[in-house]
């Protein structure tokens, strides 16, 4: 433990091994490959605001997938994120239209998101519905509420100049937009919670072995509920931003987002079996999806191919994650062998 790297080669080897055992290796390589393809095959990639727009367009899914990752880690799944996001966007827009200040509107939206998450959590842990079914019902419920409230007519006329900044249509400082800032802060906070706090440890524990967690005195149900509340919060934040970016809130604003968020989280290495996942992975997963779609758009492939590409990337990501797992296993074994030979 105390031995310091003695030479440059050793340092490089250590770094190299660190990378090889990194659980996000799969998605990182995928992202790199796509970036290389874009850089060499498509000169337009660097033109104008392309990269900037690309990042901007990935933010919503990114934020959703951060929450989704936490739910997946704790052994659940949240199909309601898209619908809850749309509902929260609707709430923010409606409250704004009533003349309330931005801040109040946001608080209302976030409270709705948390409440939806809480309800998800209660349905799963208290009523005992399977995660899939409980959150599916929430999907129907949240989208239904928005439909009823809007009667199918998009909400408009709530945009203020500040909201343009919130939506990322106007930058905040320099090239940094508010959504980017929010995504980064959110990723940092959730990442910190997962790796450094007791709650984070408990998310992993509950998803990996609920019985053992309970025997160790962890309030399993409450921990799962908190994961859903976190996901609801993320959905609310995404909704607030999307309402700004989109200029209007149609009733079907959130349709399909759950699939994208789950995809991004899985591409980032989260496991549906629980106990595995990383915030960085989710962020990169969302970027990978956006990048791939961007590439095919630039390459002149009709946008109708988007979905096909998402499907193919999912499979590629699984393969990449599988390969990175192999690399990790091999590296760890090699390192263990080296350590034991040093001991001897």
């Amino acid at each position: 433990m105390t031995s310091k790297p003695r030479s440059a080669t050793e340092t490089i080897r250590n770094l190299w091994e660190r990378l090889l055992v990194d659980p996000t290796l799969g998605v990182i390589s995928l992202l790199l490959i796509f970036a290389l393809i874009a850089a060499f095959a498509l000169p337009v990639f660097y033109a104008g605001n392309n990269i900037y727009n690309l990042v901007g367009s990935s933010i919503t899914v990114m934020i959703l997938s951060i929450g989704m990752t936490v739910v997946l880690i704790s052994g659940g799944i949240d199909l309601s994120v898209g619908a809850v996001m749309a509902l929260c966007a609707g709430v923010a827009a409606t409250v704004l239209k009533m003349g309330a200040p931005l801040f109040v509107a946001f608080v209302c939206a976030i409270l709705v998101g948390i409440a939806a998450g809480l309800l998800n959590g209660l349905l799963v842990t208290r009523v005992g519905l399977p995660d899939f079914i409980a959150t599916l019902a929430m999907l129907g419920f949240a989208s239904g509420v928005l439909y009823i409230a809007t009667q199918g007519v998009p909400i408009i006329g709530y945009m203020t100049s500040e909201y343009y900044i919130v939506g990322g249509l106007d930058p905040l400082v320099g090239p940094v937009t508010f959504p980017i800032l929010v995504a980064v802060v959110l990723a940092l906070i959730v990442g910190w919670v997962l790796s450094r706090t007791k709650l984070g440890t408990h998310f992993f524990a509950v998803g990996s072995n609920a019985v053992a967690s309970r025997q160790s005195g962890i309030p399993v149900r409450w921990v799962k509920t908190q994961a859903y509340m976190l996901s609801g919060t993320c959905a609310a934040v995404a909704g607030i931003i999307l309402a700004g970016r989109n200029n209007n809130v149609p009733a079907d604003l959130g349709t399909g987002y759950e699939i994208q968020a789950i995809s991004a989280a899985i591409i980032g290495g989260a496991s549906l079996m629980g106990g595995r996942g990383r915030v960085l992975g989710a962020v990169l997963g969302a970027l990978t999806l956006a990048l791939a779609i961007n590439i095919i758009n630039l390459a002149g492939v009709p946008s109708s191919f988007q979905k096909i590409v998402i499907g193919v990337i999912l499979i590629l990501a699984v393969i990449a994650n599988y390969l990175s797992e192999l690399a990790r296993g091999a590296t760890q074994r090699r390192r263990a062998k080296r350590l034991s030979s040093i001991d001897a």
């Binding site: 979905k307 096909i308 590409v309 499907g311 193919v312 499979i315």
Partner: peptide, 15 residues
């Protein structure tokens, strides 16, 4: 994993 596979083919078929 079947969830992932069928999520992928869901997208592919839709596309």
């Amino acid at each position: 994993n079947d969830f992932i596979v069928t999520l992928a083919t869901l997208n592919i078929a839709a596309g």
